[in-house]
Structures are given as C-alpha cells and as structure tokens.
Amino acid sequence: MPREVDPSLNEKQFVTQALEENLRLDGREFDQYRPLELTFGEQYGVADVTLGKTRILAKATAEVTVPYADRPLDGIFTIATELSPMTSPSFEVNRPTETEVLLSRLLEKTVRRSGALDTESLCLVAGQKCWSVRVDVHALSHDGNLTDAACLAVVAALRHFRKPDTSMDAGVLTVYTPAEREPVPLSWLHSPFCVTWSFFGEEGETAVLDATWLEEQVRVGSCTVSLNRHGEICQIAKLGGTPVNAVVLLQCTGVALAKVKEFDELVDRRLTEDLKRRDKGGFMAELRAENDR
C-alpha cells in the first residue's frame, strides 16, 4: 500500500501562516463551506453530493430478510462505507484505514444510533420477516471533509428512498412491485448532519469549517459535531489532537447549529424539486400515448 504523502514544508508553513492572517488558500471565510451541491438519481435512494472537489455517492436499498434473534421487533439498518483506491491510492479495498474506520463509526453514531430511522417500522412479521435497509457510501473523490459530505449524502439518500409497499392479509405477506402500488417512503424521525471543525495554531485557537485535504493534513485537531435542526446533539467527536479551550468548543457547537439548519433546508428544497420533477400529473397522465417510452 503506498503511504499517504505529506504536503511539503512550504505548503504546511504557508497554510498556517495564511490562517494567522485570516486567509484561506481558496479565499473562503473561516466559517464558509465550499459550494455544496446535491442531486438525486433516476432511481429512488441515490444521492450524489459534491462539496468543492469532494464527491460522495450514497445509495439506499432494501430487501426482506429475517430479523436478528435478539431483536425480533426491529428491522435491520446498516451503513456501509467504502473508500476505494479510486479516491486516493493510499486506500485499499478490504483493508480499512483509520480514516475509514472513524468515518464509518461517525456515520453509525450520527444516523443509526441517534434513531433517525425508525427501525421498528421496518418489521413486517415479528421474529420472521423484516426489511433490511442498507446504505452504501462511496467516496468518489477526496478533497477533504469526507465526513460532512458523507453524512449529508446518507441522510438525503434515505429521505429520498422509497421501499416497496407491502400488505399482510390472513398471514400472507405481499410485496408489491412499483407498478402495482406506489412505493412508500421510510419512517424518518429527524435529520442529523455533521459539521466538522478543524483547529490550527499552537493552542488550536483558529477554528475553520470544511477543511480541504491540504488543510486536513496540516491541522492540529478536529471536532465533528452532529446535530439536527431542533438543536439536539446526536454525537460529538473530538478524538484527541491539540487541546482546545472548552469555551471555543461551545461556540463551535453554536455555529454548527446554524449550518445544520442550512443543510436541512437544502435537502428539503432538493427533495421537493425532485418530487415535482417525478410527478407527471397522476396515473392517467402517465398512460398517455404521447409520453416518452
């Protein structure tokens, strides 16, 4: 496995020095994100997030399986992250790097453990049949801040996703195809988003949002806060790094809440647009002869 190459001394020194002069290499403000774009695929449950040069694709799928023996009333919900050599030559398939482990743990804690998806609603027949919802996260290109982009992609994909409708009739479970019955959305409880702060300077006094890859390599510490728009913290992870004053951390959480509200609005807006695009004016309109094949 090729090792990750450190940036040159000149770059390290310049990034730090420029930050002291309130400058970032791409001319952004400290609390400014790169242009964030979210698009949905033709299929339900495919979300593509671009954040500057970072690009993440998330795809949600569902299948009917047997629930775990110790949780007969819950469905199964998994998030699979993969950082492939496509992202950077230092990532290798089937050998998770520390970055990948931490990313997958963060998504797990943010989305799954915070109860964003109601897993009880995935249960079909107690102890026998349930939905297994799986989100695959693929990093297509890595220019820093994978966490925030990946989290946004996962949430957007799950909110966009529709699973086939089912019915229980006299002990017979029927799963309908999309043609028979319109697929139904998941039972979604709240939308958590990650906001990652990067710290620079001797005592981590400079806090910067949405670090690029170069900034991530130079930073002395980072803190990822996950919140939903109701102001509930879903997780905080400052896993080591240079100690930062507690007051600074509290301020960071406050700013993060404002960013999370922006993300939430973006996802809502894109979902409405997508819905409008898909809505062809009802069943009869779809059957018209002049439609595209």
Partner: peptide, 13 residues
Amino acid sequence: RVAVLVCESRVQI
C-alpha cells in the same frame, strides 16, 4: 483545554 470530547447520545444543545 479539552483534548478529547466524545458524546455518543442525543442531548439538547
């Protein structure tokens, strides 16, 4: 100065 801060449960800000 906080070196590690880990919160793994839902809590009001």
